[in-house]
């Protein structure tokens, strides 16, 4: 078990390294480099024209005249010391900007995960047990709609309905008076009042998918022999259901937490942009629109790493829950 955890941790470090490569590529993607952008800006904004020597000097200072791999290793070196560079647009360290927004991103993500499982699992179990009942048809319809309505459209539709019929806007995470205020009990309560809508919007597609998987898995398990064995023992139907088939069916579902996380973060990003939440989503969006690639690349890397951590946790959970896998892993 310990060996397995260590191996997974090592694997995570490799992934992190690969992620940094992707982030670096994205930073380098737009044509031109920082210096040429700066030169162009100086020219258009202030009408100053920089001399050729000055530009070369600048290029040297920022290291953009070196080959790619040198630039990358320099960047990685800074990165490993917690220096994510500067946001050109906002003139602030990238690390501060991300740190400001990350806790809320993680919070919303965790809440959306909880929502997904709290809604998806019971409904999935219900519709498997009562296959072809009215409730089952309802959940199937809900499952299909949840699957077909993309996050941002759901957000738009909810915003529209709330505005049209209740006359208020549901965007944002704080009311006006708390927007720039420092943290207080009032602000905290205010935030929790605003949280349900984004959490529902982000969690719904996942919940819909989960209903379908849970239903399918449980229907498979219900047909298995060990269920009949348990029934032949004289166990009560409900006890039996939760002790055997549901427990077995949940295992593959837990292993999909790692899968759903990229989806959640992906959906969360676009939802946050539509709803104007103070998370990393809109920050990334702004950065991309302004071609502030240093910031954008870092956010992408952090978001990806979040999903890697999530996968790691779900893998460990699965090993703890399923003796079959525990057996395999300890054998390896």
């Amino acid at each position: 078990m310990l060996f397995y955890v260590i191996r997974r941790l090592l694997y995570m470090i490799i992934i992190l390294f690969l992620l940094s490569v992707v982030a670096f590529i994205i930073i380098q993607l737009p044509p031109g480099d920082y210096v040429s952008a700066y030169v162009a800006e100086m020219q258009s904004m202030r009408g100053e024209r920089l001399a050729e020597e000055e530009i070369i000097a600048l290029r040297k200072v920022y290291g953009v005249d070196r080959p790619m791999y040198v630039q990358y290793s320099k960047w990685l070196w800074k990165l490993s010391h917690g220096n994510f560079g500067m946001s050109l647009q906002l003139q602030r360290p990238v690390i501060d900007l991300i740190a400001e927004r990350l806790p809320l991103t993680v919070l919303i993500c965790i809440l959306a995960t909880i929502f997904t499982y709290a809604v998806g699992m019971p409904i999935g179990i219900y519709s498997a047990i009562r296959q072809y009942s009215i409730g089952d048809y309802f959940s199937t319809v809900f499952g299909f709609i949840g699957l077909a309505v993309p996050n941002f459209l759901l957000a738009l539709i909810l915003m529209f309905l709330f505005y049209k019929y209740f006359g208020f806007s549901i965007g944002g995470l704080f009311s006006l008076q708390y927007m720039d205020a420092s943290w207080s009990a009032g602000k905290f309560i205010d935030m929790f009042k605003h949280l349900p809508i984004p959490v529902i919007v982000i969690g719904t597609p996942g919940a819909a998918a989960l209903i379908r998987t849970m239903r399918g898995c449980l229907l498979d398990e219900l047909r298995k022999q060990y269920v009949i064995t348990a029934r032949a023992k004289g166990l009560e139907e409900r006890t039996l259901l939760f002790k055997y088939p549901v427990r077995v069916a949940i295992n593959p579902i837990i292993s999909t937490i790692g899968w759903t996380l990229p989806w959640l973060i992906s959906g969360g990003t676009i939802t946050s942009i539509v709803l104007g939440l103070p998370t990393t989503g809109p920050l990334l969006f702004e950065a991309l629109l302004k071609q502030d690639m240093e910031l954008a690349g870092s956010i992408l890397m952090i978001l990806s790493f979040l999903t890697v951590i999530g996968t790691f946790i779900s893998d460990i959970l699965l090993v703890l829950l399923d003796p079959r896998i525990r057996y395999e892993k300890s054998a390896v």
Binding site: Y226, R247, V248, P323
Partner: peptide, 11 residues
């Protein structure tokens, strides 16, 4: 039962 493989719960 017939199938000793599946008639016991795996977990």
């Amino acid at each position: 039962f017939q199938e000793p493989m599946t008639s016991l719960s795996p977990i």
